[in-house]
Amino acid sequence: MNIVESVPGAIENAAQNLDVESDWVQKGGVYWFTSQQMDVRELATAMNAIHARFVTITATELPGNDGFRLEYLWDLGGKLLGFTFHISGNSIDSIYDLCEAVDWIEREVHEGFAIDFAGREYEPLLLRPGDKLGVNLREVAK
């Protein structure tokens, strides 16, 4: 039995809505979607279509100059769906216009890692005064 067959039907639906060949891997409490073909805005549209609830984005700086890993998490009936994006630069499309709940976490990641979520405007920094980005969690600033 493969992973898709072993998880609830709702997750299979999620895979179908994404319309790409993929597998789900259940690991560390999350059903991870392991396709390299994903676009973050298509993902947000697919999650809206299946009425998944946005949970958060976890950003991690990769060693060396390998960029960042962004893990987008949605809840679907108690199952946590995870989608990983690696960005080599410091920019990724914003999904704020598709998913209102992402607003503050995009602002926080922008502030903590100096990652730009393209296509949105930022209000003043969320957690710290001033105008310096990336001073909280980005390695260069530690």
Partner: peptide, 14 residues
């Protein structure tokens, strides 16, 4: 990476 969630008094903590 491992993710855990619980229902705190104010709602979901992750």
């Amino acid at each position: 990476t491992a993710v855990s969630r619980v229902e705190a008094p104010r709602g979901e903590v992750m």
